[in-house]
């Protein structure tokens, strides 16, 4: 299987006022197509920073980070924005636009990509069907439950046919039953559609469901285990 993400000795240093803070101290790993991986670590371990890098939201201070063949540390802002279309980002707080209905939220990435109306409609329906929300397409996000919102967010991430799905605490705002259903969906997407999924979490129960777990602590990867 080909490698869809390669991280080599990536570091990230923030300036907190005058003081430099090393959030990532040199992280290396790679992820192959079709994998389901969790990045597990407590808060402050640098996993959010890593998430931003993998999501092409930010560039590493040093090292390389290759998404689907492109080193993002060399890209300018516009190229980086373009690259984000290949990443299916699922945010912790859903980050749906509340004035839009489920359909329009899922349509947004396609609209940004300038895809035609008819194709958009088709892909939105397809995407929402995959997450089991075909019947609730015209509901505003404020009318949806937490689990449903999260599924809309997943549908939105899938709609651009990304190289991989990147999920930030996908169960963080859900009750345990809904969280369970969410993980079922993720596993199903991975197994049935061979979707590569990277989950960043602090929840052991979530990481227990992924075949591979990267553990982070203090800006470093401390273990890379197959469950």
């Amino acid at each position: 299987m080909s490698e869809i993400l390669q991280v080599q000795n990536a570091t990230k240093t923030y300036m907190m006022g005058e003081i430099p803070v090393k959030a990532l101290r040199g992280v290396s790993f790679s992820i192959k197509k079709g994998e389901l991986v969790s990045v597990l670590g407590p808060s402050g371990s640098g996993k959010s920073t890593l998430l931003n890098l993998i999501g092409a939201l930010d560039r590493p201070t040093d090292g390389t980070l290759i998404i689907d063949g492109t080193d993002i540390s060399t890209l300018n802002d516009n190229q980086l924005a373009e690259k984000r279309k290949q990443v299916g980002f699922v945010f912790q707080f859903f980050n749906l636009i509340s004035r839009l209905d489920a359909k329009a939220n899922v349509e947004l990435p396609l609209m940004i990509s300038g895809i035609s109306r008819s194709e958009r409609k088709e892909r939105v329906t397809d995407s929402l069907t995959k997450v089991g929300l075909a019947e609730r397409m015209t509901h505003k996000s404020s009318e949806l439950s937490g689990g449903e919102r999260q599924r809309v967010a997943v549908a939105r991430a899938l709609v651009n046919r990304p190289a991989f799905l990147l999920m930030d605490e996908p169960t963080g705002n859900l009750d345990s039953k809904t969280a369970q259903e969410m993980m079922d969906l993720v596993v199903k997407l991975n197994e049935e559609l061979q979707m590569t999924v990277i989950i960043v979490t602090h929840d052991q129960e979530v990481s227990a469901r992924t075949p591979r777990t990267l553990r982070m602590r203090d800006g470093l990867i401390v273990s890379d285990e197959v469950n």
Binding site: G55, L57, D77, N78, A81, E82, R84, K85, F89, F91, N95, I97, L108, P109, I112, S113, R156, N160
Partner: peptide, 16 residues
Amino acid sequence: TREIGILKALGAKGKT
């Protein structure tokens, strides 16, 4: 601001 962040995270360029 957050909405702008979402748009950008979904691949919207500055000019968009």
